[in-house]
Simulated assay, not measured.
Amino acid sequence: MIQAVLLDLDATLLDYGMPAWRATVRAVCDALARSAPDLDADSLHGAYTRRYLDHMRAGGDGAQHPPGRIPDADSIWRECWRQALDEYGHAELARPATDEYKRQRCRRYVLFDDVTNTLSALRSDSYRLGLVTNGPGDAQRDKITATGLDRFLDLTVISGEVAVSKPDRRIFEITLERMGLGPADVCHVGDSLVTDVDGALNAGLGASIWLNRSRMVRDPQLRPPSHEITSLHELPALIREGSA
């Protein structure tokens, strides 16, 4: 019987996608251009975007670094801004750019409209709730705090803090050990077939639940989830009825 529900953060609970991120970068570039008239906001936007996306493609969740040497998001963002601004002779603006970037990000952090009611229902049904997410610890914890998710969670495990990321089974094993539960006691819910579903299957959890908000067609080459839902509103009944 399922005793705890593990959830992914980005694109599962948090609605902060590419449009919101690009709007964040745009707001920072516009603010910098106002303070330094020789800066071109459009050019700076392109320069920062290239550097940050290159970093993410290289493995930006921090899990590739050994424990104790994992960079936080603040230092990553500051270095990307420094490099972008250095092209225009304004590397000294990297710190204020990073501070503004963090403010603009937090302004745009919002939960999907099915999150709060679903988590409240699961808590009312006495399920323990955990968050298992890839990313730098400071960035992910800022998202949790800014959206008020922390009031629902019994546990948070972040790849950048434990130096292992989904779909590696070890991040789930760390979570289970901290919760004092076995794999069969827990299900995991997430939007990614690659990191969330595969991760839950790798760890042998009681159920792997794919949140397919966009109703995309599953790649037949990827392992199927235990269950597929299109809204978190479906989750409490699925678990309550013992289907998960």
Rank of each mutant, 00 (worst) to 15 (best):
N212C: 07
M216W: 08
L205D: 05
G199V: 02
G206W: 00
A200R: 06
D191Y: 13
G190R: 04
D198V: 06
D198G: 02
V186K: 03
G204L: 03
A203N: 04
W210G: 12
A200F: 01
V197W: 04
V217L: 14
M216V: 15
D196F: 00
V189N: 07
N212Y: 03
V197G: 04
N202L: 01
N212V: 14
R215G: 03
A203F: 02
V217Y: 07
W210V: 11
L205K: 02
D219C: 06
L211Y: 07
R218F: 04
N202D: 03
T195A: 15
D219P: 12
L201A: 09
V217E: 11
A207C: 08
I209V: 13
G206H: 04
R213H: 08
C187T: 03
N202T: 05
I209C: 04
M216H: 14
A200K: 12
D219E: 10
L193F: 02
L211S: 05
V194D: 14
W210F: 01
N202C: 06
V186A: 04
W210C: 10
A203Q: 03
V217R: 15
D191K: 10
L205P: 10
V186H: 09
L205V: 05
S192I: 09
A207H: 05
H188R: 01
D196S: 08
D198S: 12
R213S: 09
V189K: 13
L201I: 11
M216D: 00
H188F: 06
S192E: 07
D191H: 04
L211I: 13
I209M: 13
L193C: 13
A203V: 08
S192R: 02
R215V: 14
G199E: 07
V186W: 00
T195P: 09
S192H: 01
G190P: 04
A207R: 06
R218K: 14
